[in-house]
């Protein structure tokens, strides 16, 4: 299917994020497939690394400064940036203003102010920028959506994920009980407070498994890494898949996770 008519020569640059680049390249490939199918001319800046969230959230503010500075400079000439990770977008929106103000560099502040409105989380980009809900996806499976804390309360994605999922052909959605409760990942929290994190994960796993879905999806691979790690450990019979991979999936080219 060709949805190129929806937009005229929309250009966007993909900020894949450090952990997706390293651990979940299939999510990045799915974003490329999806956006190119929708007629977006996608670019990828090879010098990108990390937004600094891990350092900022662990208290290494000095290190977070330099990564924030680096990201703002790297993308200062980029028209639109798409990020398939709501926690990294939340980092940029919630923490960069404070960090960059503290750095006290007027030029950097100016660059950041100009950059901020051009940064989109994937579902925001699809709904708000492209104005599309039906992306032509086909995914004939039972799926439960996990609303990550940063998507839900951090950047207020609202009903965007559901507007996209409702248009996926063949997909059966099963609602997750206690949708707004954290899965216990929390970045370095998962190792600094590993036992509490595991207790939170156990509770979340009960809710997720109670749905009887085949796949658990989200807009954050970080939560999915946590849930997926438990599913694999427990032979739970459910898999995780980033929503981008579901949206990229078609009858002709099913998601890689199905292979």
């Amino acid at each position: 299917m060709n949805f190129g008519y929806l937009v005229s020569a929309m250009r966007a640059s993909l900020f894949i994020t450090c952990y997706n680049d390293t651990l979940f390249p299939e999510t990045g490939r799915a974003v490329v497939t999806l956006l190119e199918r929708l007629g977006v001319e996608l670019d990828f800046h090879p010098k990108q690394t990390c937004c600094g969230q891990m350092h900022a959230n662990t208290g290494f503010r000095g290190e977070a400064f330099s990564q924030a500075k680096r990201l703002v400079r790297l993308y200062q000439d980029t028209e639109t940036i798409v990020v398939p990770s709501s926690s990294c977008v939340a980092m940029i929106r919630d923490q960069y203003p404070g960090l960059i103000q503290e750095l006290g560099n007027a030029e950097l502040q100016q660059q950041f102010r100009a950059l901020l409105p051009r940064i989109y989380e994937l579902s925001e980009f699809l709904i708000d920028r492209l104005g599309v809900e039906d992306v032509g996806a086909y995914f004939p499976h039972r799926v439960v959506y996990h609303a990550s804390c940063h998507g839900l309360r951090g950047i207020h994605l609202g009903d965007r994920p559901w507007r996209l999922m409702n248009k996926v052909r063949g997909m059966e959605q099963i609602a997750l009980p206690n949708l707004d409760r954290c899965c216990g990942f929390g970045g370095t929290f998962s190792v600094k407070n590993a036992e509490v994190s595991s207790a939170m994960l156990a509770v979340k796993m009960q809710d997720v498994m109670s749905t009887g879905a085949e796949f658990c999806t989200a807009l954050d691979n970080s939560c999915l890494m946590h849930l997926g790690g438990a599913m694999h450990r427990q032979y739970a019979g459910m898999k995780t898949i980033h929503l981008a991979e579901i949206l990229a999936s078609t009858e002709a080219a099913p998601a890689e996770a199905l292979a």
């Binding site: 208290g59 309360r153 929390g186 970045g187 929290f189 509490v196 939170m200």
Partner: peptide, 10 residues
């Protein structure tokens, strides 16, 4: 104690 949180924002 400042680390006793997953920063979920609830």
């Amino acid at each position: 104690l400042p680390y006793a949180s997953s920063l979920c924002g609830a």
